Computed example of a mutant assay.
Amino acid sequence: MIKLNAVAVSSKDITKTVAFYKLLGFEFPEFGPDDKHVEPITKPGDVRLMIDTAELMEQLTGHPPTPPNHSSFAMLCDTPAEVDAVAAALKDAGHVLTVEPWDAFWGQRYATVKDPDGYQIDIFAEL
Protein backbone atom coordinates (compact mmCIF):
# COMPACT_ATOMS: atom_id res chain seq x y z
CA MET A 1 0.00 0.00 0.00
CA ILE A 2 1.30 3.46 -0.90
CA LYS A 3 0.41 6.40 1.32
CA LEU A 4 1.59 9.94 1.94
CA ASN A 5 4.43 9.83 4.46
CA ALA A 6 5.98 13.31 4.44
CA VAL A 7 5.73 16.86 3.12
CA ALA A 8 8.96 18.81 2.64
CA VAL A 9 9.80 22.49 2.61
CA SER A 10 13.16 24.19 2.37
CA SER A 11 14.41 26.98 4.58
CA LYS A 12 16.94 29.79 4.32
CA ASP A 13 16.79 30.18 8.14
CA ILE A 14 15.69 27.08 10.05
CA THR A 15 15.24 28.99 13.31
CA LYS A 16 12.70 31.35 11.70
CA THR A 17 10.99 28.49 9.87
CA VAL A 18 10.66 26.41 13.05
CA ALA A 19 9.22 29.45 14.90
CA PHE A 20 6.61 29.82 12.13
CA TYR A 21 5.57 26.16 12.25
CA LYS A 22 5.40 26.26 16.06
CA LEU A 23 2.69 28.91 15.63
CA LEU A 24 0.79 26.28 13.62
CA GLY A 25 0.99 23.85 16.54
CA PHE A 26 4.03 21.76 15.63
CA GLU A 27 6.39 20.68 18.43
CA PHE A 28 10.07 20.30 17.63
CA PRO A 29 12.94 18.51 19.31
CA GLU A 30 16.04 20.50 20.16
CA PHE A 31 18.24 21.21 17.15
CA GLY A 32 21.59 22.89 16.65
CA PRO A 33 22.80 25.74 14.45
CA ASP A 34 24.60 23.30 12.14
CA ASP A 35 21.58 21.02 11.59
CA LYS A 36 20.48 20.94 7.96
CA HIS A 37 17.33 18.87 8.51
CA VAL A 38 14.68 19.06 11.23
CA GLU A 39 11.28 17.42 11.69
CA PRO A 40 8.54 18.08 14.25
CA ILE A 41 7.72 15.35 16.74
CA THR A 42 5.07 13.03 15.26
CA LYS A 43 3.26 9.88 16.27
CA PRO A 44 3.91 6.66 14.34
CA GLY A 45 1.85 6.70 11.15
CA ASP A 46 1.40 10.49 11.09
CA VAL A 47 2.43 12.43 8.01
CA ARG A 48 5.79 14.07 8.71
CA LEU A 49 6.86 17.63 7.95
CA MET A 50 10.49 17.72 6.80
CA ILE A 51 12.38 21.02 6.84
CA ASP A 52 15.74 21.10 5.06
CA THR A 53 18.10 24.01 4.55
CA ALA A 54 17.97 25.56 1.09
CA GLU A 55 21.68 24.78 0.79
CA LEU A 56 21.10 21.07 1.45
CA MET A 57 18.24 20.92 -1.07
CA GLU A 58 20.39 22.61 -3.70
CA GLN A 59 23.17 20.12 -2.98
CA LEU A 60 20.73 17.18 -3.30
CA THR A 61 18.81 18.38 -6.37
CA GLY A 62 21.38 20.45 -8.26
CA HIS A 63 19.32 23.66 -8.24
CA PRO A 64 18.09 26.18 -5.65
CA PRO A 65 14.65 25.38 -4.23
CA THR A 66 11.79 27.62 -5.33
CA PRO A 67 8.64 27.70 -3.17
CA PRO A 68 5.44 27.08 -5.13
CA ASN A 69 2.95 29.82 -5.94
CA HIS A 70 0.10 27.71 -4.60
CA SER A 71 -0.52 26.05 -1.24
CA SER A 72 1.83 23.25 -0.33
CA PHE A 73 -0.45 21.73 2.29
CA ALA A 74 -3.36 22.59 4.57
CA MET A 75 -3.77 22.65 8.34
CA LEU A 76 -7.15 21.55 9.74
CA CYS A 77 -8.45 23.52 12.73
CA ASP A 78 -11.25 22.37 15.05
CA THR A 79 -13.40 25.49 14.64
CA PRO A 80 -13.78 28.57 12.44
CA ALA A 81 -12.77 30.67 15.48
CA GLU A 82 -9.50 28.73 15.67
CA VAL A 83 -8.79 29.61 12.01
CA ASP A 84 -9.22 33.27 12.91
CA ALA A 85 -7.04 32.95 16.02
CA VAL A 86 -4.22 31.11 14.23
CA ALA A 87 -4.31 33.56 11.31
CA ALA A 88 -4.21 36.51 13.74
CA ALA A 89 -1.28 35.02 15.68
CA LEU A 90 0.67 34.48 12.47
CA LYS A 91 -0.11 37.99 11.21
CA ASP A 92 0.83 39.49 14.59
CA ALA A 93 4.15 37.63 14.37
CA GLY A 94 4.84 39.39 11.07
CA HIS A 95 3.89 36.66 8.60
CA VAL A 96 2.01 37.46 5.40
CA LEU A 97 -1.58 36.32 5.02
CA THR A 98 -2.14 35.92 1.29
CA VAL A 99 -5.82 35.19 1.93
CA GLU A 100 -7.48 36.67 5.01
CA PRO A 101 -9.91 34.34 6.84
CA TRP A 102 -13.22 34.05 4.97
CA ASP A 103 -16.23 31.76 4.77
CA ALA A 104 -15.62 29.84 1.56
CA PHE A 105 -18.56 28.82 -0.59
CA TRP A 106 -17.56 25.14 -0.21
CA GLY A 107 -18.40 25.24 3.52
CA GLN A 108 -15.12 26.02 5.24
CA ARG A 109 -13.53 28.95 7.09
CA TYR A 110 -10.34 29.42 5.10
CA ALA A 111 -7.13 31.46 5.18
CA THR A 112 -3.70 31.19 3.55
CA VAL A 113 -0.35 32.31 5.02
CA LYS A 114 3.21 32.34 3.68
CA ASP A 115 5.96 30.74 5.70
CA PRO A 116 9.32 32.57 5.97
CA ASP A 117 10.48 31.11 2.65
CA GLY A 118 7.28 31.75 0.70
CA TYR A 119 5.53 28.38 0.95
CA GLN A 120 1.81 28.97 1.23
CA ILE A 121 -0.09 27.07 3.90
CA ASP A 122 -3.89 26.86 4.00
CA ILE A 123 -5.60 27.00 7.40
CA PHE A 124 -9.20 25.81 7.47
CA ALA A 125 -12.12 24.44 9.49
CA GLU A 126 -15.57 23.21 8.60
CA LEU A 127 -18.25 25.88 9.05
Rank of each mutant, 00 (worst) to 15 (best):
N69R: 13
C77R: 03
P40V: 07
S72E: 12
L24S: 04
P116A: 10
D84K: 02
P40M: 07
K114W: 01
E82M: 08
C77P: 04
A111D: 03
T42H: 14
A93F: 03
V47E: 07
G94L: 13
E30R: 12
T79M: 00
G62N: 14
P40Y: 11
M75P: 02
L49Q: 09
L49S: 11
P33V: 04
W102Y: 14
W106L: 08
D52M: 10
L24G: 02
H70K: 11
A81E: 15
G107I: 03
D103C: 13
P64D: 07
C77H: 05
A111K: 01
G32V: 05
E55S: 08
E100V: 05
L23S: 04
T98I: 15
S72T: 11
V83M: 03
A74P: 06
W102G: 07
L49E: 09
D103G: 14
T98G: 09
E82A: 12
V38D: 00
F31A: 04
H63A: 15
L97Y: 01
E82I: 08
F31M: 03
H95T: 08
D92H: 12
G62V: 07
S71V: 15
P80I: 00
L24C: 11
Q59I: 03
L76V: 11
T42P: 07
P101D: 06
H70E: 11
S71P: 15
G25F: 01
L23F: 13
P29T: 08
T98E: 14
Y110M: 04
W106M: 12
A81V: 05
F28G: 10
Y110W: 12
P44A: 11
D35N: 02
T79W: 00
T112W: 07
P68T: 09
N69K: 13
L90H: 04
P64V: 05
P33A: 09
R109L: 00
L23V: 08
D92M: 14
E27C: 09
A88N: 10
A87L: 05
E55F: 02
P64A: 14
L90M: 14
A54H: 02
G107E: 04
M50H: 06
